[in-house]
Simulated scan of single mutants.
Amino acid sequence: MFTGIIEEVGEISRIESEGGNMHFTIKATMTPELKIDQSVAHNGICLTVVSLSEIQYVVTAVAETLKKTNLSSLEKGGLVNLERGMKLGDRLDGHIVQGHVDQTAICKNIEEKDGSWVFTFEYNPNMQNITIEKGSITVNGVSLTVINSKKNKFSVAIIPYTYNHTTFKYLREGDVVNLEFDVIGKYVKRIQELK
């Protein structure tokens, strides 16, 4: 389980394909604190550390993960938001994040607003995911609050700290991002469907 509070931005130093899988080597300052078998969220995707050295580690994504996320579009030298699993007893500063991406979205607009930024994303509504005004959403692993909630579109306001300490400062219109919708909202929606 994660919180959506990004610890650092890692750099992809190598990508290898093996059958339907892809192995990503990530360079990150947190590497010495990691261990094999540990879960780390990469742009909101929970992946397991399979090997490590002093300054970098390797994770593997299977075909199903590659199909549902933006991982397959990443390139060597690309940057990813990183977060280790939450420790029991820690503060939940973001919201409950599982590291299971529901679908991707496209960045449709970026607007600077007097020291902050508003990013607007559009997603396929056929997957039945929803946002609500002032509800939680995870975009590339970052816990955010929804504004301007529509059927297949929403915006988020990004403060300077988040902008400078995540990959948001590198996002451009047309870029694909990972979305994890609020887990509580997903359960409520499912309960309503069963009635």
Rank of each mutant, 00 (worst) to 15 (best):
E111C: 08
K108G: 06
Y57T: 10
V101K: 00
S53E: 14
D37F: 07
K113H: 15
N140P: 09
V176T: 13
S53G: 10
M86V: 09
D102E: 02
P125I: 01
T25F: 09
L171R: 09
I132E: 10
Y57M: 08
I130L: 14
D93Y: 04
E33N: 15
M22Y: 09
A28P: 10
H100T: 04
V142C: 08
E11W: 07
M30L: 10
I130G: 11
A105C: 08
L71Q: 05
K195R: 12
D175Y: 11
V139R: 06
F181E: 00
S39F: 02
G77F: 01
E54A: 13
N164S: 11
T131W: 08
K68T: 15
Q128S: 13
L82V: 09
N152H: 11
K35F: 07
K169G: 11
T138A: 09
V118A: 12
G4D: 13
E75K: 13
F119P: 02
V101F: 01
R172P: 06
D114T: 10
N70M: 04
A63E: 15
D37S: 12
L92W: 04
Q128D: 12
D37V: 00
T65N: 03
I96N: 10
Q192D: 10
V9P: 01
I26H: 02
Q192M: 15
L74A: 04
A61I: 07
G78D: 09
N109T: 12
I96G: 08
H100V: 03
K108C: 10
K150R: 15
S136W: 04
M22A: 12
Q103K: 03
S13F: 02
E180R: 00
V49E: 05
V59S: 00
K151E: 15
F24P: 02
N178I: 08
E111M: 08
I191N: 11
N178S: 03
E112I: 01
I12E: 00
Y161F: 15
I45W: 01
T31K: 08
K68G: 08
E64K: 10
I6W: 03
K67F: 06
Y161K: 11
V59G: 00
V188C: 11
L92C: 04
I158M: 09
A105H: 03
K27F: 09
E18F: 11
L82D: 06
S17V: 03
H100K: 02
T29V: 15
K113A: 14
S51R: 13
